[in-house]
Amino acid sequence: MTGPPAPAQRGKPAAPARRPGLAAACDRLARSRPFEIGIVVVILANGVVLGLETYPDLVAAGAALHGLELFFRAVFVVEIAIRLVAYGRRPQDFFQHGWNVFDFAVITAIFIPGLHGDPALLRVVRVARMVRLVRFSPGLRTIVSALWRSLPGVGGFLALAVVTLYVYGMAGWLIFGSTYPEQYGDIGRSLLTLFVLLSLETLPDLIEQGMAISPWTLLYYVSYVVITVNLLLNILIAVIVNSMEEARRLEMTERLAPGYDEDGDGVPDEVDRIALTQRLDDLRAVIAELERELRIDRDDGHGRAHRQDATARR
């Protein structure tokens, strides 16, 4: 699945100039806020039903839960059909966007005949529907986009982390292997011990064991904590935060793109901004005219008052 599509393409048709009547109606429906809210409610309800199915005491309600599952399937199929029809004579454009492909795969996978023979795999596919909530939340889309963009940086971080853990694992095997074989008996045990140590929960016990061998072992654990737990994890956080900022900037840039219609009123937001700017200019002109008239009236009032004072003095 590719990264989140551009805002004008987030699972919504690109609104061509002319559409058949049915396609135009489906397009307006797919872009409407009530439609999205309804789908979100159904997805959440589907998650609740999946959770209820895990309770063995609700076996008696199995028929009702199965009926709800069939209802959810029908709603999701209708949703995908509406989004497909909204593309008019070019339904293939629906599959040009990653989120649309993901939605289509998750909804249609439930109808694969061989899937029903494996209840565990079938449940995984049904649980995957909950991921569809991401497409309806701009904040979640930004996070997913940031994680997607951070993969190259995370890959480099993982390579560095593996090398660091391997070096410290070999050093731990050489230092503690004969004394504490359960933690450092081989490279696998050493890596597992050091991986658990990333949480710092076992650090006091390991330091106590090391001090029983030599005070110099404290240098081993202190350097490991500083390099891996602090330095490497902070690098990972920095990579993700940087990707988050890039995704947010991209989101803001795409919102300024021509044709983007966030409010779903059929008028691109660029046109809305132009109309709003014109109205503000008109309002400024009216205010300037009122200020000019008030200033004239005030000046006239001061002039009359000055003349009346002069007359009274005479």
Score class of each variant (00 low, 15 high):
L122N: 13
V59H: 15
V222E: 13
Y168T: 06
A310T: 04
A25D: 04
V41N: 07
T311I: 08
L280E: 10
R273P: 00
I112F: 08
Y220W: 13
R33G: 15
G259F: 12
H302C: 03
V101I: 15
R255C: 06
N46M: 07
S243E: 14
S243C: 14
P20T: 11
Y221P: 12
L256H: 08
V226W: 14
Q308Y: 07
P7V: 08
R129V: 10
W99K: 02
S243L: 11
L151A: 15
D186A: 03
G47F: 15
D93T: 08
D300N: 10
G117Y: 10
S32P: 09
R31W: 10
A23S: 10
N100W: 07
I112R: 02
G264T: 03
I80W: 00
F76N: 05
R279N: 01
L29D: 07
I112N: 05
D186C: 02
D93G: 06
F95L: 10
P56A: 13
Q9R: 11
D205E: 05
R90S: 13
G156N: 06
T253L: 04
V162D: 09
V131N: 10
G301I: 04
G177F: 01
V239K: 09
V78F: 08
V49A: 07
D27S: 15
I107N: 10
L206G: 03
A257G: 05
V127C: 11
P91D: 01
V134A: 14
T217R: 00
L290W: 00
P268H: 12
A60M: 12
H306L: 08
L218R: 04
D93V: 08
A161C: 11
A8I: 13
A288F: 01
A45H: 12
Q183L: 00
V196S: 01
G67I: 11
M130C: 07
V40L: 06
A109H: 10
F71V: 13
A128K: 05
L29F: 08
W173R: 10
I107A: 15
L58I: 12
L147M: 15
G139H: 07
L283H: 10
L218S: 06
D300S: 04
L70T: 07
P181D: 03
G153F: 11
P91H: 03
V154T: 14
L198N: 14
V271N: 01
G38I: 05
G156S: 06
V41S: 12
F95Y: 09
E270V: 04
L280F: 12
P16E: 05
V125A: 15
L44N: 14
P20Y: 02
G210R: 01
P4Q: 02
G3S: 14
W173G: 07
D309G: 09
P181H: 05
Q9Y: 15
I207P: 05
S178V: 03
A120R: 14
T54A: 09
F111Q: 06
T217S: 02
S223F: 15
D263R: 09
A171R: 13
A109Q: 08
T54W: 02
R18M: 04
I187L: 02
D265L: 03
D186P: 09
R18H: 11
V48I: 10
A45M: 13
